[in-house]
Computed example of a mutant assay.
Amino acid sequence: MNVEEAIKTYRTFYCLDCGVCTGSCPVSRVHPSFSPRIIVEKALLDLGDELLKDRELWSCLTCGRCFERCPTNIDFPEFMRALREEAARRGTSPLLSHHGMLQTVMEMQTQGIRQNKTAWAREAGEIAQTGDTFFFVGCMPYFDVIFRDIGVDSLTTSRNVLKILNAAGVVPVVSDEEACCGHDMLWNGRPDTFRKLASANIELIRKSGARRVVFSCPEGYYTFKHHYPQYFGKLDFELVHFYDFLSELIADGAIKLVDGGSTFTYHDPCRLGRMAKIYDSPRRILEKVEGSRFVEMERNRENAVCCGTSGWANCSICSKQIQVERLREAKSTGASTLITACPKCQIHLNCALASMDLEIGIKDLTTFVAETMHK
Rank of each mutant, 00 (worst) to 15 (best):
C306S: 11
N188V: 09
C66E: 00
V105H: 01
E86T: 11
L47C: 08
C342I: 10
N188H: 05
V214P: 11
V305F: 00
F67R: 11
D149E: 06
E50N: 04
L44D: 08
G311Y: 09
P141T: 02
K163Y: 00
P32C: 10
L47Q: 14
G233C: 05
D17A: 13
L235C: 09
R283W: 10
R65E: 07
D259Y: 04
S216L: 10
L197P: 08
G151M: 09
D176W: 08
R114S: 12
G19C: 06
S158V: 02
C306K: 02
D49Y: 13
S28T: 14
E68N: 12
L338Q: 01
G233Y: 07
R293F: 07
A88T: 09
R37A: 14
V240C: 02
D259P: 01
Q346K: 11
F134Y: 14
K8Q: 13
V213I: 08
V171N: 04
R29G: 05
G311D: 06
G334M: 06
V305W: 00
K196L: 15
G308I: 01
F143K: 08
D184W: 09
A128W: 03
T118Q: 01
Y221C: 04
V20Q: 04
G334R: 04
W312N: 07
P218G: 06
N201D: 06
W312I: 00
T92A: 13
C139T: 10
E248M: 08
S208G: 03
A124D: 02
P94R: 06
H98T: 09
L249A: 12
I150N: 07
S33E: 14
D132A: 13
L16H: 11
G19V: 04
G125A: 03
Y228E: 06
E86H: 10
E86V: 09
P191N: 13
R122L: 05
E248A: 11
A304M: 02
E287K: 14
L186H: 11
S199P: 00
R301T: 12
A370P: 02
C25N: 07
R122F: 02
H226V: 09
L286R: 08
D280E: 14
V369N: 00
A167W: 01
V20R: 07
V305H: 00
W120L: 03
V27F: 01
V369R: 01
P141R: 05
P191R: 12
F147N: 03
E238I: 00
A210D: 01
K375Y: 14
F135G: 02
L96R: 10
E178N: 04
V30W: 13
C25R: 03
M80F: 14
E298W: 03
E359V: 01
L52T: 11
K8A: 15
G169P: 00
R271Q: 15
G91V: 08
M140V: 11
A200Q: 13
F242I: 11
R89V: 03
T337N: 13
T333R: 03
F143D: 05
W312E: 07
Q115V: 11
V3E: 05
R29D: 06
T309W: 08
L155M: 15
A82C: 12
E5V: 10
E302M: 11
P32A: 12
S262T: 13
S319C: 07
S35H: 12
S216K: 10
H226L: 01
W120M: 06
D268T: 09
E359Y: 00
T104L: 14
I150D: 07
T72M: 12
S292W: 01
H226M: 04
N166H: 03
H183Y: 05
